[in-house]
Design a protein around this nucleic acid. Sequence first.
DNA 1: CTGAAAGCGCTTACAG
DNA 2: CTGAAAGCGCTTACAG
Lengths: 340, 340
Amino acid sequence: MTTQRRPVTMADVGAAAGVTSRTVSNVLSGNKPVTPATRAAVMAAVRTLGYQMNVTARGLRTGRTGLLTVAVPALRMDYFAELALAVVDEAERLGWAVTIQQTQSDRERELAILGGHDRLLSDGLIFQPHALGPVDRDLLVSDQPVVLLADHPLDARADQLVLSNEEIGRAATAHLVDRGCRRVAMIGPNQDPGPSTAGTYRLHGYARALQAAGLPTGPELVVEADRWTWEGGAAAAEDLLASGTPFDGLFCGNDSLALGALHVLRSHGLDVPGDVAVIGVDDVKDAARSRPALSTVAIDTRSVAADAVRLLVAQIEGDPSYGGPQTRLIPHHLVQRGTT
Amino acid sequence: MTTQRRPVTMADVGAAAGVTSRTVSNVLSGNKPVTPATRAAVMAAVRTLGYQMNVTARGLRTGRTGLLTVAVPALRMDYFAELALAVVDEAERLGWAVTIQQTQSDRERELAILGGHDRLLSDGLIFQPHALGPVDRDLLVSDQPVVLLADHPLDARADQLVLSNEEIGRAATAHLVDRGCRRVAMIGPNQDPGPSTAGTYRLHGYARALQAAGLPTGPELVVEADRWTWEGGAAAAEDLLASGTPFDGLFCGNDSLALGALHVLRSHGLDVPGDVAVIGVDDVKDAARSRPALSTVAIDTRSVAADAVRLLVAQIEGDPSYGGPQTRLIPHHLVQRGTT
DNA sequence: CTGAAAGCGCTTACAG
DNA sequence: CTGAAAGCGCTTACAG
């Protein structure tokens, strides 16, 4: 059925319709006015010959591919998966397609993508660095349009949407204190892949909230989690319980950790929030569906994605309303549910 | 910082290194042997000038983009989101990037993507039809490499990975019967978007299992769900409870429905599996994490994705081991957990 | 409103 | 192993 014949070109269509490829191009792109009769003849030839535009050739000529790239650490992590899919959805709305790249939090890979060495077939990049930190800010300059999603403001001339991570940690912890917790543990900070991850900032906020309330802090209350996943949270909660450290509140670096920890706490017969109150960060879909439903500091990935796509497209298209690189804080808000 | 200068080309690199663009191409592609001295000179020039390959130009010349497209009904549905992301992950492993398209189960959009009219910048397509059915099989022929993920075998000359949907419905229902259920309800079948969706086939299997066991069937036991989502399952379960129809087993068309229904059943004070046993289909990530954990008929999206990518790449590359279009059944297996 | 021609930046037979 | 040149299939100033 699929005989290997030479693909139909605009010249072929033009020949069949009695015009040149230029007119075919004008008809299909709609860039230039064309008489109705010519348009009809061209469209008829398109159908007869089964013409399909060679998008690569157009891309070479126009310098546009119609593609955006979104690069996240790993899709295995619910938050990044939801974020990447939200970007796909928002971009589609504006007529752009998206390719998803995983950096695996690998420093070399992040540098390659940002620097454009691992040149991707796309017109712009939405990038969430994970292994790169403030030290690397000079590298964060590239000639490709880029929007950074950052865990802290970077001193880079690039559009960035920045989480208020310390404030998020403080707000979550303060909420636990407000709910009566006196010994608040935390699951989340990790050494790898870098010193500038969300966990470190959220830890600072956690410590600040406890100090402000005159409550105890200490290394025995803080458990590392290598992977910010459900499994990572479950394992960390097991460790925390095994350590024997008493605690009546638990702040988890994100919802995936919190949901895993919640599962373990209840499996050990603890009442949540009676024995331990639990709070996470992100408001992933599952947060509202757990039993009890998870309290969290919500980050609206849909609006992050929408802002990122809008900013990126404005850069790419040279939109006059685009006033140059800017840094915006990503809003967050507390959502109280059953676990606190 | 980002001054708009003419981008560096291979000719520029060649000029700086004292060779022509042909040699630069040979060095960067590795297609032809090059003397070490020449290679070193070229690489030095690449670094000095900050050369970045124009991938679009290469694509026009070679006829390859290095991109695959995966088109699913909607990312809002967990199963399709997990499937699309699994394709991204598996393709990355083989050195391909992926763009994700949503059809929104729209017939016109499905036809456009399949027919190649909405020509996408990619070398091949992994496609899950939702609105198209057996009636449309003639349309399922396109000149682009394609792998279909289907709810029923299509009479199309294309690679297809097909779910055994009727058998899945039968196995799930038979499991409930084995566990002692005598009045088994089902949530799932829907009229829209087409008559050939998974729900219809799974309903047949459900009915067959009940008849084989000599157990009652009937319209009052079957609740439609417009959307196969958590919310759809919750709403359907509310309807079922409100109808007053007694039931001690519940087969849901997929896990998302089942998890939503489970939530509602427990909110109404019902014991699962004591009062009602529940089973779903897919084995999405959340299935293992609910309380009680959800029994299900597991479909391994990772292996589906891996097979689809492998088949598609074999087609694209004209792999001699590729023996032409074939139909493969996607394996499934029962996973018993806490809800049955 | 349309034709003839140039050119986007690569890769690849054709020579040497 | 390398140079000079053609060509992939479009879009777009240049003429008319």
